[in-house]
Amino acid sequence: MTQAEQSSFFPEEVPEPTYGVGELTAAVTRAVAAAFPAEVWVRGEIDGLRPANAAGHVYFSLCERNSRRGPTASLGVALFRTERLRVERALADWPGFELADGLEVRLRGRVQHRFGRVQIVMSAVDPVHTLGRLAADRDRVLRALAAEGLLAANSRLVLATAPLHIGVVTSAGSAACADVLAELEASGFAFRVTLADARVQGTGAEASLLRALRALAGLSLDAVVVVRGGGARTDLVTFDSERLARAVAAMAVPVLTGVGHETDTSVIDEVAHVACKTPTACAAFLVERVADALARAEVAWTGVHRRGQGQLVRAEATLGRQAGAVAVRAGGALAGA
């Protein structure tokens, strides 16, 4: 058999193409650009949001979660300075909205492959989607809590007449924490405060707040205070958590809340024993209750003292009359003898 005949049975293998790194990267970049020639809308949860860098750019990830263990899909997002300023101007009409970790958003941007990864170059965000989703979730949670009778569970507990041992759940060192401690200290009353440090915003805030409540649940307290300073409505989303609301409803002592500004209302406000407008107002409520208890005690002691003095005077008068009568009888008896 000739060599040509042998080759027909064993054809030569065609070598597989081998790309250079730059060549393959360029091909992927072109493929992504061809697949997404225009900007797209994408929704997901913000994670790893950092402040603008020295160049004015902001970077974060957009995640999709199917469990609490972590994101099941993640996409990098770049918000460059020019677009960031444009987005900030647009959001000025939505004072209740700010980008924050843990927030679900719908944003628009250009899909690109760069530095070996696919990312979105953001150009706009839809606040209506986020705020509408937050409102819908809040209504769902409130309906579920109401159906189980949990909205009034904590309010049925009896608050101590003079609540002096207080558990405080907030971020240690925050303005809210400082306001509460300063108000209690300025009262001059013997408040004992147990501080449970917790994150109050962003990824991990819900779990942190739940741990703080569990830690205080094992202590002998008169009341627990949950406070957080003001911010955008989206900053307070953690306090609309169903798990957090259930934890507050299950506490064995009254829970007072002071979350956000005077106009803010969160789900945990609805399940709390008392919902105050601000952290300072929360502390002031406790101070006023102790002051009222002290005032009532002083009035009661004054009444006891007055009644005691009256009884003493009457007893002295009675004793005087009886002593006089005894003296008269004794004198008569001696004269007759």
Score class of each variant (00 low, 15 high):
126 D>Y: 13
262 E>W: 07
227 V>I: 08
121 V>N: 13
197 D>Q: 09
32 V>I: 15
206 E>Q: 13
176 A>W: 03
195 L>Y: 01
329 R>F: 02
297 A>S: 15
127 P>C: 11
257 T>Y: 09
52 A>S: 13
248 V>I: 15
259 V>R: 05
26 A>Q: 13
28 V>C: 09
67 S>V: 06
92 A>N: 07
149 G>Y: 11
275 A>P: 01
256 L>T: 00
286 L>M: 13
212 A>H: 05
122 M>Y: 05
94 W>F: 15
1 M>A: 13
73 A>I: 03
70 G>A: 04
323 A>S: 06
327 A>H: 13
227 V>K: 02
175 A>N: 00
82 T>L: 13
233 R>D: 03
162 A>W: 04
245 A>R: 04
127 P>R: 08
228 R>G: 05
266 S>D: 00
37 P>L: 09
216 L>R: 01
20 G>Y: 05
150 L>I: 06
232 A>H: 03
198 A>C: 10
16 E>D: 12
305 H>R: 15
50 R>C: 05
239 F>M: 07
60 F>D: 02
141 V>Q: 05
225 V>D: 01
266 S>N: 05
226 V>C: 10
317 A>G: 01
167 G>Q: 08
32 V>C: 02
184 L>K: 01
257 T>F: 01
125 V>E: 09
301 W>H: 14
141 V>S: 04
86 R>K: 15
260 G>T: 03
226 V>H: 02
84 R>K: 14
152 A>S: 15
334 L>P: 00
198 A>W: 01
58 V>C: 14
9 F>T: 01
78 A>P: 04
205 A>Q: 06
197 D>G: 11
325 A>G: 12
14 V>N: 11
6 Q>K: 08
201 Q>S: 07
63 C>H: 01
208 S>E: 05
203 T>I: 05
154 N>T: 10
246 R>V: 06
59 Y>N: 02
107 L>N: 04
128 V>R: 15
195 L>P: 00
91 L>H: 06
174 S>H: 02
10 F>S: 08
71 P>G: 02
301 W>K: 11
22 G>N: 10
138 R>Q: 13
